[in-house]
Design a protein around this nucleic acid. Structure first.
Lengths: 240, 240
DNA sequence: TTAGTCCTATGATCTATATCAAGAAATTCG
DNA sequence: CGAATTTCTTGATATAGATCATAGGACTAA
C-alpha cells in the first residue's frame, strides 16, 4: 500500500511543508476531489460545517485552512478527535449521521461532494481509502498520546506534529546541526489544544510556560511559537 | 453512506449479536473477503500476526476470534488501540510498514489477502472504505474515552461495548423491563483491558470490585461477567 | 481613549489515579 | 495431586494534573 504515501493530505507527521496544499490546488493531483463535481465554499474561522447527529449527505475536502472534528459529552466535556489539514477528507459516516461536529479553526476553503457520487467512482474510492488509512494511523498515534503520555509529552508531541518531517518514530534529525530552530503556527486556542490533548487549559498553559522558562521555545504570540531546538523538544515526546 | 451499515464487522456498539460472524461465513455477504483469494489460517491465543514496523504486504480479515492492535513506547508503555471482532479488516497501512502490532486475544481464524489485489477490485475497495469508516467511528469514541472519561466511566463503557445494541448514544433501552441482565465474555486479561482503557491494572481491578460491591455486576470468572442491570451500568458510561 | 470581552497565566489546594507492596486466587505443569 | 507460575485483588502512600480563584494582556467597539 505504498501508493498511499503520495500527495496525501498529511495532517500531522507528514513530509510536505505546511500550507503547500498537498494535492489540492495541484492540477495533476492523483485524484483531485474537485474533478468529481460539487462546489467549493469559503468559511470564516470558528464556523460549524456540520453538527454531530446531522444527516450525513456530503463528503468534504479541506482545500485551505484548518478544521477540527470534536465530540461532546452531555455534561459539556469536549474531545477534539481530529485536526485536519489541506488535502484531508472528512464527513465519512458509518451510519447515516455524522459522528462528530466539524468546525473550522481559521478561515478555510472547503470543497463538498454529494455522498451518492462516491459509490460510482473507483478512482474516488481509492482516494478515500488512502485518506482514511492515513487518518487511521494518526488516530492510533493519538490514542497512545491520550492513553499513555504525560502532559509534557502530549504538548511536546503536539508541537512536533507541526514540524514537517520531524518527530514521531521516523524522525530524520536536523538537516543543519547548527540551526535546528523552527517557527510554528498553532491556529488553536489553549482551550482547543487542551481539548485535543485531553488536558485542562491550565495544564497546557503551565507546560508551555515551563518550556519557555527552560529555553526550549519562545512564545511570540499565543498561537505563534518558535522552537529553538527541535531535537531537544523531540526528546520530550516520549518517542525516544 | 447508509449502505455502510449493512453486514459490517461491527466491533463495538453495533447491532449484530456477538459471534454472528457478520458477513464472513455468510455466502451471500456483500463482498466476502474470501472470494478474492488468499488463504485462511488458524492462530492460537496470544499469537502475533505481525509486528509494528513489519513490511505491510497483506490485508487480514478476522473470521472468528478476537484480535487487538497495539503500539508500544520505547520505555514499555503500551496502548491497545483497537479490539477487533469477526468481520473486521486490519493490516491497512498508510506507509509501507504496519503502524501497530496485531495479536490474537483468543484462538482465532484469520483470512489473509495480498495487498496488491486491493488496487484491482472496486468491490473490495468499497468493502474497505466501509470497514475503515466504521473503525474510524470507533476510534473517535475511544478518543473521548481516553481523553475525557473517568476510570469508572471507562470501565462501564468498555463493558457496555460488549452488550449488542446497547450503550453509546443511541441506546434503545431494555427490551424487557423486568429482566435487564446480560452475560459477557471479555476475552482480555486485566492488563490488556488496562492498556486498552489507558489505566493501570490496579485501577481496573478496583473499579470492577467496586461495581461488584455495588451489585451492578457479578464476576463469574475473571473474564466472564454478568451484568445484573444493563441500564444502571449504562448510566455510568458518561453518555447520560 | 475607555470600557467590555475574551483569552492566557499563575498561585493554592484538592483529588483521582498511579505507584509500591503484599497476599490471595487461578491456572499450568510435572 | 502439589508446586510453580501467572493473574488478580487489596491496602498504603505518593503525585500529576484537576479544580478553584484571581489577575494580567490583548483585541473590539464606541
Amino acid at each position: 500500500m505504498a501508493y498511499l504515501e503520495r500527495e496525501l493530505g498529511t495532517q500531522f507527521g507528514g513530509r510536505n511543508s505546511p500550507g503547500a496544499g498537498a494535492g489540492v490546488a495541484d492540477p495533476k493531483a492523483y485524484a483531485s476531489f474537485a474533478s468529481f463535481g460539487g462546489k467549493t465554499s469559503k468559511y470564516d474561522g470558528h464556523s460549524v460545517i456540520y453538527f454531530e447527529g446531522d444527516a450525513a449527505r456530503r463528503l468534504y475536502e479541506l482545500s485551505s485552512g484548518t478544521v477540527m472534528l470534536f465530540k461532546l459529552l452531555p455534561d459539556g466535556r469536549r474531545q477534539v478527535v481530529e485536526v485536519l489539514r489541506p488535502g484531508d477528507i472528512f464527513g465519512f459516516s458509518a451510519a447515516d449521521e455524522y459522528d462528530c461536529t466539524a468546525e473550522t479553526l481559521i478561515s478555510s476553503e472547503i470543497h463538498e461532494l454529494d455522498l451518492r457520487l462516491v459509490d460510482g467512482s473507483a478512482e474516488l474510492q481509492r482516494k478515500l481509502t488512502k485518506c482514511l488509512t492515513n487518518q487511521m494511523k494518526v488516530l492510533h498515534e493519538h490514542a497512545v498520546l491520550l492513553g499513555r503520555k504525560s502532559a509534557v509529552e502530549r504538548v511536546a508531541s503536539f508541537l512536533m506534529y507541526l514540524v514537517p518531517g520531524r518527530g514521531g518514530t521516523e524522525c530524520v534529525g536536523p538537516a543543519d546541526e547548527t540551526n535546528d530552530g523552527f517557527d510554528i503556527e498553532l491556529h488553536m486556542t489553549r482551550q482547543e489544544i487542551a481539548d485535543y490533548l485531553g488536558l485542562t487549559i491550565e495544564t497546557v498553559s503551565r507546560v508551555v510556560s515551563d518550556l519557555k522558562r527552560r529555553g526550549i521555545i519562545r512564545v511570540d504570540r499565543a498561537d505563534r511559537i518558535h522552537l529553538h531546538k527541535v531535537c531537544s523538544l523531540c526528546q520530550m515526546t516520549g518517542f525516544h
